[in-house]
């Protein structure tokens, strides 16, 4: 007999996997993006089910509000509504299926071979305060250094964007209009 929690988990898992499958099988690019979105929302739902509200919210902000919107924008700019992609060659389909299967098998093998032991340390409560202190802590296994390193990477990426987007005015044309 399943309890309510199990029903919720299987429901969310079915949403995630089902939409994932639809995202790769549909031949309309925009629909694929929308199914990807629902799949990501399903993952956020599973975080919420585990009561990691903060991770769930960040999942929605980053993936749904950021990445999927970006994908949709690039589809808007490059495709026409109602256009269908040509079906893939059978060779490619088999190759893609094999690659996915190998990845899946690898993960499942690891999961089954690993023995999970319960940690003796008390768990950190997944509140925003705890996460924030841990993130910017320099002692007690804090993540201050990786956090700063990643922020330098982001800064470099942003400077790169500005350099690419900067407007070069041709010679002979003044800056003022």
């Amino acid at each position: 007999m399943m309890n309510g929690s199990d029903i919720l988990f299987y429901g969310l898992a079915a949403l995630t996997l089902g939409c994932g499958v639809l995202a790769v099988t549909t031949r309309q690019l925009f629909r694929a993006a929308i199914f990807l979105l629902f799949s990501l929302i399903g993952v956020a739902g599973i975080y919420l089910w585990m009561q990691y509200e903060f991770i769930a919210a960040v999942q929605v902000v980053v993936y749904v509000g950021g990445i999927v919107v970006l994908i949709i924008f690039s589809i808007f700019l490059t495709h026409q509504a109602g256009e269908k992609l040509a079906p893939q060659k059978i060779k490619r389909q088999i190759a893609a299926f094999l690659a996915a299967f190998c990845g899946f098998a690898l993960v499942m093998l690891q999961v089954y071979q690993h023995t999970f032991t319960e940690s003796s340390e008390t768990a950190v409560a997944p509140t925003v305060k705890a996460i924030g202190t841990q993130m910017l802590d320099t002692k007690n296994g804090g993540y201050a250094l990786p956090f700063e390193v990643i922020s330098i990477l982001l800064l470099a990426a942003m400077i790169g964007c500005i350099v690419i987007a900067i407007q070069k005015t041709p010679k002979g044309i003044s800056q003022e209009q």
Binding site: E53, I72, A81
Partner: peptide
Amino acid sequence: NIGVLYITAVSSISVISILMAGW
């Protein structure tokens, strides 16, 4: 416990419905 963050996160989905309708 993430009240306000939840609101900003969920409201970012609303743009999807507009993009979907437009497309």
